[in-house]
Design a protein around this nucleic acid. Structure first.
Lengths: 212, 212
DNA sequence: ATTTTATAGATATTTTTATATCCATATTTT
DNA sequence: AAAATATGGATATAAAAATATCTATAAAAT
């Protein structure tokens, strides 16, 4: 490996903090602020200034020495890094409590995500709209995916259905699955799976509570 | 600090993996399995055997040399470590899409959590039940908290309301807040805040997707 | 004009977390 | 009965992430 193709890797923890920064920068921008220092951000985020400084430097946020990071420019680089500067079409499978809640979450527009279709098997859901999103029968998955050339799936089905649906998604050419089902999905290496599990957070909370 | 009161700290990452183990152990137990090896668990979880071994050793899971970890005994130590062996009463503030979804999530029983009350300000919600949980007006927060001696709050209100509600909760003597609002709450050091933010997961997903 | 100060920038250090290696032993295989 | 093997247990190493330290500089204060 030469020194030329060695791009500076950005750590996962840094990536996970970016949305938080982005939110704050949006607010600053709305208020007309043009510069903000890492110490000011630290107060807002309850992180250490050095963490913020390194995170923003890692994504190449523009700055002015002794003055802070440039608000507009930093928004641009974070959005570009995450691909949130234009909308990715996605769809959701499993219109249960959580699935419906996600369909109703309008914050996704700011996160580069547009949910264009939903799928379920229950007759009383299929054919209706949830928060403006049309619900199709799961049997139509492959067809709709192909027709609309969709790449991102949000999986909010019960645990026992998750792997079956996943196999269908993979066959249909899906590139990324945001998995809210409490299962470890088996997929080929070319497919990205991002697992979401709130019980981890609850475990953390309970452990801290116990040790008090 | 003497060497005596130095208890082996369990890492946060280990704690966050415990619910996953617990789920698998519940299944194994239901199937009558008495022992399971770290290699078998590794296949199921897609983690490395060494990670699982160290995690389980950290919480003091009982094992049999050359045979694996004892299913029933490991369930017991994990549950005890997390305090999930008996139910903690909790309540939820903010019966929006996400709040309602959480009220409908019956998996909390396995996670040591029982939601006994909900709060909101919308007249059409107050006085009704959501998934069997009574919704009170937010103005009654302090009263209900005190009356039922509640310690854990689940916060699913809009960002702009979060800090105000939090101040009320703190005054009422709440010990832990599970925060789903995209805000950094300010609380006294005695109060635990566990922040939940799905946009971090989405950022991770998008970053991986871009770098393909 | 001069001094002070807050900051990005760069580098170094520490801590945390993940991974690898070796060993003793109970189980399985031969 | 003997040999091979898979495993927990213990320790060592490596990688990742967080934190600290130092420097140059532009802005603010004097």
């Amino acid at each position: 490996m030469s020194i030329f193709n060695r791009k500076k890797e950005i750590s996962i923890q840094t990536i996970r903090r970016l949305p938080q920064y982005l939110r704050i920068f949006y607010n600053l921008h709305a208020y007309g602020r043009e510069l903000v220092s890492s110490t000011a951000l630290a107060e807002e985020t309850q992180l250490l200034p050095i963490v913020i400084k390194k995170d923003l430097q890692a994504v190449g946020a523009p700055s002015k020495l002794r003055a802070g990071f440039k608000v507009a420019g930093t928004i641009a680089v974070i959005e570009k890094f995450l691909g949130w500067n234009n909308l990715n079409k996605a769809f959701l499978v499993g219109v249960g409590h959580l699935g419906a809640a996600l369909l109703g979450f309008d914050g996704f527009k700011n996160h580069g995500l547009e949910i264009v279709a939903a799928f379920d098997t229950h007759p009383e859901k299929v054919g209706n709209q949830f928060h403006g999103v049309q619900v199709y029968h799961t049997a139509q998955l492959a067809t709709v995916i192909e027709k609309q050339n969709l790449k991102i799936a949000i999986l909010t089905v019960p645990a026992n259905a998750a792997q079956g649906i996943t196999d269908t998604l993979v066959t249909a050419g899906i590139k990324a699955i945001w998995n809210f089902a409490p299962v470890n999905l088996t997929v080929p290496p070319s497919v990205i799976v991002q697992k979401e599990d709130i019980s981890s957070g609850l475990a953390e909370l309970c452990a801290k509570l116990k040790s008090r």
